[in-house]
Design a protein around this nucleic acid. Structure first.
Lengths: 192, 192
DNA sequence: CGCGACGTTGATTTGCCTCAACGATTGTGG
DNA sequence: CCACAATCGTTGAGGCAAATCAACGTCGCG
């Protein structure tokens, strides 16, 4: 149950057996069915969650009522709404499961205690966020400078398993294009 | 000379006098004239820099030869190309001064030593990156869902001093729109 | 079986880009 | 200190990528 996450942690920091046991003890294990809302816009996001099994997405509804998918997360990914989490402000995001999931949940208050008890985790979370920032920045650049076709090709290349697991219109909303146009791009690709 | 940066640090962590002195001792103070290149694409980014005075920008040249400004930094901001910094890979970014600048430079090797000597800094850098991630994510959402006009209005509202300091076409490249179109947006605003 | 969610296709529209020409301002070398 | 070049912003004409709107087919599921 903790094998994957412990492996994740060990890539950044070395823990003693005691520390590892403590860490696993504070995680809340939860199985949730498909299409469960884990966070609603308006609520404060009080958790970070690690996907042990399954697939979830985080999205946002803009002023025109359009959904924009910010992130998918599958096995071995973390998810949270950091803005809400760190400032303790109401979130603009929705987080929902797309499949039946096994999650490990780290609540904000528990995380704070963890950081006091085992300061090594400061480093792990720093490295984790640093990598995440790098990914988001990369995506920002491509959102600005790529055409819709280029964005789609990049997406299926980088995340080849996602299209098999999530409805196509969610991918369109991740890429920032309309579902109709994504469909047209795909037929254009098939004709070659 | 270190007043501003020390104040910056103190917002995240508490240091002893010794620790503070050590920290200031490892920073490299540098004044650089306007239009100096601090990082070239192809080089590895081995530093994080803190702007004590002046204004700089980080940009990227895409496959069509267009410049995309990723970030401006003025007084009390940090800048780096994290992707290159953390992976030690050649950067795709250019960093250049837009005004005469006073900079405090933290090199990668020195930062590593700092983190070993004063682990508290793990926390400061974690919080710093966390805030930055929040900003970049916010920008990503708006890049996708806002019209050019909305992006521009948001920009001048959030960063009211920047337009007075940097050429307009750099702002266009930050917003991901053409300089001509930004100009047209501005005349549209004036006519109201 | 029938409904809702999903993907496709076509017609039309639009936001923004590209290209080109032109003032205004800045800066630089003679 | 002037002359000329660069740099920068503006304006207009025309074009294109992607959005919108609408209709339709298909599949999975209650």
């Amino acid at each position: 149950m903790f094998q994957a996450i412990n492996n994740y942690v060990s890539r950044s920091i070395q823990l003693t057996a005691d520390e590892l046991e403590y860490f696993n003890g504070i995680l809340e294990y939860k199985t949730v069915p498909k299409k469960t809302m884990l966070l609603q816009a308006g609520d404060v996001c009080n958790f970070e969650l690690y996907v042990n099994k399954g697939c979830i997405r985080e999205y946002y509804i803009d002023s025109k009522g359009m959904e924009i998918t910010l992130q998918f997360a599958v096995e071995d990914w973390w998810m949270s709404d950091i803005t809400s989490f760190q400032d303790q402000t109401p979130s603009n995001m929705y987080i929902e499961t797309l499949e039946d999931c096994e999650l490990l949940i780290l609540s904000r208050s528990v995380k704070e205690k963890l950081l006091l008890q085992v300061p090594k985790f400061e480093r792990m979370f720093r490295l984790m966020i640093q990598r995440h920032l790098s990914v988001v920045q990369n995506r920002l650049v491509k959102t600005i400078s790529y055409t819709a076709m280029e964005k789609y090709l990049e997406f299926i290349k980088r995340y080849p398993t996602i299209p098999q697991r999530v409805p196509q219109h969610y991918i369109a909303s991740y890429l920032g294009i309309s579902p109709e146009f994504l469909s047209k791009l795909r037929t254009r690709l098939l004709k070659k």
